[in-house]
Design a binder for these strands. Structure first.
Lengths: 229, 229
DNA sequence: GAATGTATGTTGAATTTTCAACAAAACGGA
DNA sequence: TCCGTTTTGTTGAAAATTCAACATACATTC
């Protein structure tokens, strides 16, 4: 099923991306080569609309999208293919499944643009190698940190969308942003439609609610800039 | 702020709990003592309604609730104190914050019954000790697995409650259960009120929807036993 | 077995969201 | 500046949820 063309060497072209990846945080670029070797990293190319992982594949590998774009998909209960998340260059995918010891992937990953992917066998990360290399140790720690941060973000979103009304969801989101950024004026990384999707509410209803809150003197906003009053 | 009465020795009474904890999976009981020593574990007692962690405390420690009961709390945007999760003996808490490198806890943890807690400094877990003990390595791996599993569970719930209608939420939940248990007949671990809370819907509306689905021949159920048709 | 309390089901009114359609504003390029 | 496009705001009707109140079923205790 998996057809590895390139093992080991000649991965320097990925280094700029890896340097930015939290998975390689605190790891020196000079260690990248021996490290990828030690981890048995496999580089793979995929063309637009090719399948990277299929639902049901063993969840042994985590992927790093080095170039191009891809998406994680799932079949929902009605049989619709739904997008779980969109991936851009530098992003990690399938790492939770690989680290959680899940047998088989419950999702598929498909290239939406031609792309290059680095695949790492999760067992080779978590089972520190015989030479007990320091960077190996660091990578496990990075993985733990990434996963823990993801878990916190998911928890925050769950807490926000668990509110029942548009107003409560919006206010929960905005006050969380204000708390995290430690200021009552901040910019949200969404346009209206994206914010509505994030909050799981209707866009027009969201606009209406924002207007109402403005009239009530609860907040001000201009486009994506919000101020809580 | 933290007042450690007991360091190191005499923690044998916790071993039965620790043996069951996924944090100690694959670690032999004979290693527990040197391990807790190496990790600088602190045992603490709290009386009912005492505070274990306060919002704003440094997020350095993860906790293991060894006996009694506790809850994780948060102040929501309206100023209400809300329960994030209930903890029973054996459960881990604050581990995501400690592993994610968060500066300060965004939640409080309060004893709801008299309880005993084991506190572990997360840095001493993630920075493998000088003697590079094998169990230390195993514990990092366990933490990673626990965190990844938690992240998957949170993602699943987010996917379920991101549906807009009671019917869609319920069906998404039930089909996920059926997929995971690999059978169309299964028991859900909730009564109606708990299921409604999990799905973030109104209990009476949930009952009504279940009746409707039964009449439509989509499912059968008796109490918490469901069958998808 | 009667009584009590809890869990679940049912119903209609009030509230809220969603949906569709359109208006207004902002943006970018020719 | 003009024009076409995209984003955002507004509105009313349809649909769904929530809420409250009550009915029924189930379980436990006395």
């Amino acid at each position: 099923m998996l057809n590895f063309q390139q093992n080991g060497g000649n991965m320097e072209r990925f280094f700029p991306i890896l340097k930015e990846s939290p998975l390689f945080a605190e790891i020196k670029e000079q260690d990248f080569s021996p490290m990828l070797e030690c981890l048995g990293a496999k580089a793979q190319r995929y063309q637009r609309s090719e399948t990277i992982f299929s639902e049901g594949d063993p969840a042994a590998y985590l992927g790093i999208l080095c170039s191009g774009a891809a998406q994680v998909e799932r079949i929902d209960y009605k049989g619709n293919r739904t997008i779980v998340s969109e991936l851009t260059a530098g992003e990690l995918f399938a790492e939770s499944f690989a680290c959680a010891g899940v047998e088989r992937l419950p999702v598929s990953v498909t290239a939406t643009e031609d792309c290059e992917v680095l695949l790492l066998d999760c067992r080779r990360i978590t089972q520190a190698c015989c030479n007990a290399c320091a960077f190996h140790q660091q990578m496990i720690y990075n993985l733990l940190k990434i996963t823990a941060q993801k878990s916190i973000r998911l928890h925050q979103r769950a807490e926000i969308i668990s509110h029942r009304t548009t107003r409560d969801k919006l206010m929960a989101y905005l006050t969380l942003q204000a708390t995290q950024k430690n200021t009552s004026r901040f910019t949200v990384p969404f346009d209206r439609q994206e914010l509505a999707d994030y909050l799981e509410v209707d866009r027009s209803g969201l606009s209406a609610e924002i207007s109402k809150l403005r009239k009530e003197g609860v907040l001000n906003c201009r486009k994506s800039e919000f101020e809580l009053l």
